[in-house]
């Protein structure tokens, strides 16, 4: 058990390999919801929450049900169900989003109405499925998958909140008409992503 290893993994997934700015995941809701800082903040928090729960949940599904030999406890040690990974991960994610939505509605109606439509849309946010698939591909263990889910979520939230802040300032600038909206957001993301690339120099 090396605490430093997990701290490094968290820093790496937040800054160095930011899931949005280095892997382009979750770009659609990033562009659609980064017009106001408040909504960006709410969506960011919701994504962190869902990701912290889903990544380890997918890990458990994979290791106890889908991987080759994982069904040994049921006497089916030769069964390899790993081709079902996509469909079961997306099922876990959409079920989890549904549960989170119901919980938030029950315990914090204020947050629920603030997030509104964005909560159910998290199910189709590629950042979540992306994190789960990266977890699978890089063979993280259970603790690592929690840390990676957390770091990935925080990194995503960080990127969308900073973009919302920049776009707020941008409201007063005179941008050429065809460049407004998507165009200028992409150019800004390029600059932001260049900034985040500086973290690549950190030796972890």
């Amino acid at each position: 058990m090396d605490i430093l290893h997990y701290v490094n993994l968290a820093i790496k997934s937040i800054f160095v390999e930011n899931i949005l700015l280095a892997f382009f995941l979750g770009n659609c809701s990033y562009i659609a919801c980064s017009k106001k800082v408040d909504t960006a903040m709410g969506l960011g928090v919701a994504v962190v929450f869902v990701m912290v729960i889903c990544t380890p949940a997918c890990w458990a599904i994979k290791h106890f049900l889908l991987a080759k030999g994982a069904l040994g406890w049921a006497g089916l040690s030769n069964v390899d169900l790993s081709f079902l990974i996509f469909i079961s991960f997306i099922a876990v994610i959409s079920a989890m989003t549904q549960i989170v939505e119901m919980l938030v509605e029950k315990f914090s109606p204020a947050l629920y109405s603030a997030l509104g439509i964005f909560l159910p849309l998290i199910a189709v946010n590629c950042a979540i499925l992306g994190a789960a698939l990266f977890m699978d591909q890089r063979n993280y263990n259970f603790l690592e998958s929690i840390v990676f889910g957390f770091g990935g979520g925080i990194g995503w939230a960080l990127a969308i909140i900073s973009m919302a802040a920049i776009r707020k300032k941008l409201a007063y600038s005179n941008i050429p008409a065809p460049l407004r909206g998507l165009g200028i957001t992409m150019l800004l993301s390029g600059l932001l992503s260049m900034g985040f690339m500086c973290f690549a120099g950190i030796r972890l």
Binding site: A22, P178, L179, L182, M186, L187, S189, G190, L191, S193
Partner: peptide, 19 residues
């Protein structure tokens, strides 16, 4: 080949297509 290049390029393509 890195991430920023892709962002810039898409921004420019969107700009041209919309013009």
């Amino acid at each position: 080949l890195l991430a920023p290049g892709a962002f810039f390029l898409l921004g420019v393509i969107v700009w041209v297509q919309r013009s």
